[in-house]
């Protein structure tokens, strides 16, 4: 179903303006790809399934987000043993690199994406414990003293 590119509300094919924000519809294209056998559907480009309300082009050669994602990916891997820092930096790195790849895909942002994913995965594996509080805190190195201290606290 088509939607307005200005406010995101669904609109009918027969409408000439968006009922939510009033933007004028200039171009009509379909949205859903209902064919499961469509092998020509390229999804690595900016989607052309919107109703456009203005037409302009930008020539964005900046790579700030890509560089930031690369740095955050490295930080996420380095701090993956520190728990929440590795997770948060990994998530932000993934978001920034994806945003950069949408605008201007390049090697630095792709590398930032890969490093951020690796850092996030390592951080999550190491530090997601059980969903209940009565459990051990698992670390990369067996720390018996810390486990015994938690055990005493739970059962005292």
């Amino acid at each position: 179903m088509p939607y307005c590119s200005k406010c995101g509300s669904y609109i009918d094919d027969s409408m000439n303006s968006c009922p939510s924000c009033g933007a004028v519809i200039l171009q009509k294209k379909s949205t859903d790809n209902n064919s499961s056998q469509d092998s020509n559907n390229t999804t690595n480009t900016i989607p052309n399934n919107n109703y456009y309300t203005s037409s302009y082009t930008t020539n964005n050669n900046e790579n700030g987000k890509g560089i930031a994602s690369l740095v955050l990916g490295i930080v996420s891997i380095v701090f993956s043993s520190s728990g929440i820092v590795g997770i948060v930096t990994g998530i932000i790195g993934i978001a920034l690199s994806s945003a950069q790849n949408k605008e201007n895909k390049n090697g630095i942002s792709t590398a930032g994406l890969i490093l951020s994913i690796i850092g996030l995965v390592i951080s999550l594996i190491c530090f997601i414990s059980c969903s209940c509080m009565d459990c051990y805190s698992y670390k990369l190195v067996d720390d018996s003293f810390w486990r015994e201290k938690l055990w005493e606290e739970i059962f005292d």
Binding site: D32, S36, P47, I87, I91, I94, N101, L113
Partner: peptide, 26 residues
């Protein structure tokens, strides 16, 4: 994503925000 003509990087970015929201909400 192929059933909806989505940009895959858009979905990856959405996933990052969902993960952040899910950890916070949980």
């Amino acid at each position: 994503a192929k059933y909806f003509n989505h940009n895959r990087y858009d979905l990856i970015e959405a996933t990052a925000f969902i993960l952040l929201g899910a950890l916070t909400g949980a």
